[in-house]
């Protein structure tokens, strides 16, 4: 197997083009039409919400949602003014960015060891990480809360003096709940990598660290991109632990902005929809940025021959 990238790249590119319709070129139109149809079905509910986020609540309350008219931009300006997005976006960034990076890094470490050095022990290890993900987080609420309240940390880590009410605590919890899943996914991707790659590295005398950073990580790019997108989405949208562990409204992540648009009894759903659209933007940006890794694929064949 060749490690050189270019020939493979050329070959794969050459493959992709004529591949579309296959031998039966008469059905070449079928695939795009199917995909377009699926996309429309998938987008439709979302478009429905998008349209209604531009409509006046009094109008939709009177005429029902299956109607036309009452268009306004007010929901967006009101949502922006009322929900304190600036503060909460910052909080979300403080929580999400370190949590995603650390989760992915630590998961890579575990996955690398599990996939690279296959021992029975490692399988048990994987079970240990995976089973952790099967618990409903709500069940762990009280024990975690009690522990965090009891653990004292220096004030530069948390202004409350305990892990409770601190971003660090929340980041740790997010990591703990996501590492298992990521380690499992990554270890399986890594198992799909050819062992021969390591062989030459070992012969060259490369250290474990070098094998990890120079062989494994680059080859896991599509998987890492996929996981980064998913993790960002999940941790960014995570609200349960945030409310329990932070307790102060001005530390809450951006989801709380949306809740601030709801009344005790009454909710203007059109306003909340507008706010939700604004809140969804950062996760979309991350998706678009990392998307090229799914579109381009790998420049290297990475399957056991």
């Amino acid at each position: 197997m060749s490690l050189a990238a270019d020939p493979v790249q050329e070959r794969s590119e050459a493959l992709l083009k004529p591949h579309e319709g296959g031998p039966q070129s008469g059905r070449r139109w079928l695939l795009p039409v199917m995909l377009a149809l699926i996309s429309l079905i998938w987008l439709f509910p979302l478009l429905l919400a998008l349209v209604n986020s531009f409509r006046d609540y009094a109008f939709t309350a009177k005429n029902g949602y299956v109607s036309w008219g009452g268009f306004t931009l007010d929901n967006y300006t009101n949502a922006w003014q009322q929900a304190d997005f600036g503060l909460h976006f910052t909080n979300s960034a403080i929580i999400t960015i370190p949590a995603v990076i650390l989760t992915l890094f630590l998961s890579c470490c575990v996955a690398f060891v599990v996939a690279r050095f296959s021992y029975r022990f490692n399988l048990a290890l994987l079970g240990f990480f995976l089973a952790a993900n099967l618990l409903p987080p709500q069940a762990l609420l009280i024990p975690v809360y009690r522990m965090f309240r009891a653990i004292e940390v220096p004030l530069w880590i948390s202004d409350s003096g305990t892990l409770l009410n601190s971003f660090v605590g929340l980041i740790l919890v997010n990591m703990a709940f996501q590492i298992g899943f990521c380690a499992f996914v990554l270890s399986n991707y890594m198992k799909a990598l050819p062992k021969e790659l390591y062989e030459s590295a070992v012969i060259d005398g490369a250290s474990v660290t070098r094998q990890f950073f120079q062989i494994t990580l680059p080859l896991c790019r599509p998987a890492l991109a996929a996981l980064a997108v998913l993790q960002t989405t999940w941790i960014y949208n995570e609200f349960f632990w945030a409310t329990v562990l932070l307790q102060q409204g001005d530390k809450f992540p951006v989801t709380s902005s949306l809740n601030n648009l709801r009344g005790q009894f009454f909710t203007d759903n059109n306003l909340v929809a507008a706010g939700s659209m604004i809140v969804a933007i950062p996760t979309l940006v991350i998706f678009f940025v990392l998307q090229r890794h799914f579109v381009a694929g790998l420049t290297l064949g990475a399957t056991k021959g």
Binding site: T243, Q247, G249, D250, S256, N259, R262, G263
Partner: peptide
């Protein structure tokens, strides 16, 4: 310290 109604009640 303002916390949304639902979170306040649940916590």
């Amino acid at each position: 310290n303002t916390v949304d109604h639902n979170s306040f009640q649940e916590n």
